[in-house]
Amino acid sequence: MFARIQLTLRQHRLETIALFVLCGGLALAGVIEAWRLNSLNFPHSCLQDGRVVQYWYDGSSAPTACQLASKKFYDLVWSPDMSIVAMFEQILPFIVGIGFGAPLVAREIETGTAPLSWALAGSRFSWLLGKIVAVVVVMVPLLLVAGLAADVREGALVPGIDPHAMFDSYAARGVFFVFWGLAAFLGTLALGTIFGRTMPAVMVALIVCVFVRGLWEPAWTHTILRPFAVEADYQWGSADLFVYNSDQLYLDGKPWNGDLNQWFNEHQPAPPVMATPDASGMVPSSSAAVSNAQPVDFGPPPQPITYVIHGADYWLVTRLECAVLLAGSLFCGAIALFWVGRRKPY
């Protein structure tokens, strides 16, 4: 078993080295960025609601003593190196998965070594299964390390909230790294087995991954997560997962079906009223004579109700989504195993 793993990794040594370098590099970069943020020692008393670092510049909301610390914090958060680390956290599992999945079968077929490999191996099924196990054994722990480092970085970005109790970038960190990587790997493996060519498998897999990743969160919030959503209070924020807004507008807690334009027309401030000139034709200078149209507080306008999932349900959502990703991965793996037994070796 160990010999087969070693052989597979040696055969794909470029991909293996790239996996170690990319995962190790990103994990290190994530931890360093988290350390840089943490070493600013942002005062806990300055956190908004004890959770989020406010933007330094907004004098009306951030306490004055926090301005400098907040400026330093955001200078770091918006620095190019932080952006690059964040960008890589979005794509690393896909690069690793596609990088390993595409050549595993397609390259053997493409270079004409498949007939020999398949003839030497007792069965094609066990040949491919051995290769899959070899890749998974190496890929899973490395992606997990990179994902946990991304969790640490996220924790430093929002110092007042446990990263496992908030939904900020939740599908681009933590255990999701492993499941995205597995899905990309087994999906690309299936494509490579069907196409029998590496490059088309890579390209189609890249496009499919972009679509799936982009559609993932909207698809979940439109379907499976809806029943779990609860009405948001006025201070819902980055810890919560926005699910949807009600179609119905509400005013003072009651359904409101009027015309929105008309409501705003009726509730906007009155236009300025000019004072009447006195007998001498002069306008009294007293400021009371001119009614400046001051905004009148009519309370909140008609608005939809927002439904969210609270950060406390992080693990519930993560478990559900990872289970679906795993099921999809296993399905793709099954297609690859089925197809490799049926297809011609050229």
């Binding site: 790239a18 595409a102 590496t198 390209m203």
Partner: peptide, 8 residues
Amino acid sequence: RASPTVLV
């Protein structure tokens, strides 16, 4: 090699 080239 084509596939590693694409990824790098």
